[in-house]
């Protein structure tokens, strides 16, 4: 064009796509949700029985616990170490069993590998129940069914791990690249073979990562299962608090801290070794 076009720009409404407005008013649903949550918080605080005397006494009582806790008791360390070992072993056995069982359940639960939509719903619901009931509640149930001790603890950790790992495995399986799966299907392989040869190997790095994380989580969880009698160091912790032997309690707390940190470190190192760090963005 040789001449400048001096006609005014057409108004946006006249033609051309309009960009969406920048802000949208939150819907009624969001508003009601915020009001309900806020109301519950206010109501909860009003029922807390926050007497001034209680608040004033708290620092002194905490100080009492700390001053009696230090120096931590050393006389019972051999016994406590044994209980700690039991805790770690409970975590390892429970996690191993849990990871083992969560794999087939995940294959039944993932939409792309399930044999039937009903099985998908059933497996998913099972995982939801296992995950949603808190582990201390599972522990109480298992203490009732198999009695006090580490077996109840192992079962608790197993169920907790299945609920967690099963869900993550299933989600991972659902988002797998379909390429290798199609390649196996195209050879005439059975569904089972496709799962064994394409699904599991391609999802394997993510499975190992999740399993290591579960182990970490189980060590932490196993430490408190003894509070309801499901074996491990938690039993000792419970007794120490009830007898107000705060120096022993402090020893146990420090031991738990060390073991949990160690577990985190070890699983971090193992993850790095196995997954060779993944793709660098540097």
């Amino acid at each position: 064009m040789s001449r400048l076009d001096t006609r005014p720009m057409p108004a946006p409404s006249a033609g051309g796509p309009r960009s969406p407005s920048r802000f949208t008013r939150p819907g009624w649903g969001a508003l009601i949700t915020v009001l309900v949550l806020g109301g519950m918080a206010v109501h909860g605080v009003s029922r807390l029985d926050l007497s001034p005397e209680r608040l004033l006494n708290a620092p002194a009582r905490t100080w009492d616990f700390l001053s009696r806790g230090f120096p931590p008791a050393t006389d019972r360390i051999p016994n406590l170490a044994e209980a700690m070992l039991e805790t770690i072993e409970m975590a390892i056995i429970g996690t191993a069993l849990g990871v083992l069982f969560s794999l087939p359940i995940a294959l039944l639960a993932a939409r792309n590998t399930t044999p039937h939509s009903w099985v998908h719903v059933a497996a998913k619901s099972l995982l939801t129940v296992m995950r949603s009931v808190p582990d201390l509640v599972w522990a109480m149930v298992f203490v009732v069914s198999v009695g006090l001790g580490p077996i109840a603890g192992i079962l608790t950790i197993m169920v907790d791990t299945i609920g967690f790992a099963g869900r993550f495995f299933a989600e991972r399986i659902e988002e797998l690249d379909r390429g290798p799966i199609d390649a196996l299907r195209s050879t005439g392989a059975t569904r089972l073979s496709v799962m064994a040869c394409a699904v599991i190997p391609t999802a394997f790095p993510s499975f190992t990562g999740t399993s290591l994380y579960c182990l970490e989580k189980s060590v932490r969880g196993a430490a408190v299962l003894g509070l309801v009698g499901a074996g491990g160091i938690g039993v000792e912790l419970n007794v120490a608090f009830q007898l107000r032997q705060f120096d022993t309690a402090m020893t146990i707390i420090i031991m738990i801290l060390v073991v949990v940190l160690l577990a985190e470190r070890l699983s971090g190192v193992a993850r790095k070794r196995m997954l060779d760090g993944g793709a660098s963005v540097r």
Binding site: G179, T187, P201
Partner: peptide, 18 residues
């Protein structure tokens, strides 16, 4: 039938981890 039909894919579908 699939057994009798070999397929080579555009996206070179191998199982990378094995």
């Amino acid at each position: 039938v699939r057994r009798r039909v070999g397929t080579v894919f555009q996206s070179i579908n191998l199982v990378d981890q094995v």
